[in-house]
């Protein structure tokens, strides 16, 4: 056949870049996803971290660390959990299998999307903290908090993927919310652990978000004193288990 007319610009990198760009644009245009993700963390931080503790810079600094983790969990959990569940039900994953899409690009594009959202959410919180909250941190502390926030979104991407492979598209938003919000509360992201009932404080280490927030709190010297490596080990193990589950469920998944 006549194929000489178009010069090929095919490259796997271009496939990944196009997928990632369009995944971000697609989610940004979806109010059901973008509004809660981009507005709620900033709104809660303003209410609880800035207004409630009015004038108490220490409180605003503490809450900056915990609300950053709260914020970056959302895009990972919803971006994977809800969209994978819907896409397997609605034929998008089926179409992707038939056309020469790159399977890896599906996951990488969602991860990049979650990281970009996480970055925007952190910047929002940092701006609110630095202005209204009167938070003063060294440049390295800001940078560390940013890096920790971005990395912390990854275990929740993996968790979202597990949810997405298991539940159907209609149930997914409720399931994710049912996990996300209680887990955030129980990990001391909304209120410091010391203010939670003793029992809840004791079981907080079972939640991945507890460990992420403790790492973030280390940057401002406000954590509970558990060695850093323990938090990192927990999160690494949690992520691996989630990925293992996701791979297992993915291969059994029924595409519609």
């Amino acid at each position: 056949m006549n194929t000489a007319s178009t010069i090929s610009k095919y490259s796997p990198f271009n496939v990944y870049a196009t997928e990632a760009k369009l995944e971000f644009i697609r989610m940004l245009r979806m109010p059901m996803f973008a509004l809660p993700a981009l507005v709620f963390p900033a709104m809660f931080y303003t209410l609880f971290g800035v207004l409630m503790g009015s004038g108490k810079t220490e409180m605003s600094t503490y809450m900056l660390a915990t609300y950053s983790i709260f914020g970056v969990m959302g895009p990972g959990l919803f971006g994977f959990g809800v969209s994978v569940a819907m896409e397997k039900d609605r034929g998008w994953l089926k179409w992707r299998r038939a056309v020469p899409a790159l399977p890896g690009a599906y996951f990488v594009s969602k991860m990049v999307m979650a990281l970009i959202f996480a970055f925007i959410i952190f910047v929002e919180l940092a701006l609110l903290a630095g202005t209204l909250g009167g938070v003063h941190l060294a440049a390295t502390q800001w940078l560390l908090l940013l890096v920790i926030s971005l990395l912390s979104s990854l275990p929740f991407c993996a968790m979202g993927l597990v949810i997405g492979t298991l539940v159907n598209g209609q149930a997914a938003p409720a399931v994710v919310n049912f996990i996300y919000l209680p887990m955030a509360f129980l990990s001391g992201l909304w209120l410091p652990i010391s203010m939670l009932p003793k029992f809840l404080g004791k079981i907080a280490p079972i939640w991945p978000s507890y460990h992420a927030s403790q790492i973030a709190l280390k940057v401002i010297g406000n954590d509970l004193g558990v060695p850093l490596w323990q938090h990192i080990a927990y999160l690494a193990a949690f992520t691996l288990v989630m990925l293992w589950l996701a791979v297992t469920f993915w291969s059994r998944m029924k595409l519609k």
Partner: peptide, 13 residues
């Protein structure tokens, strides 16, 4: 090239 019968594509794109 493929055209399936019942694929729902991303609506916001």
């Amino acid at each position: 090239g493929v055209m399936l019968q019942s694929a729902e594509l991303p609506e916001t794109l």
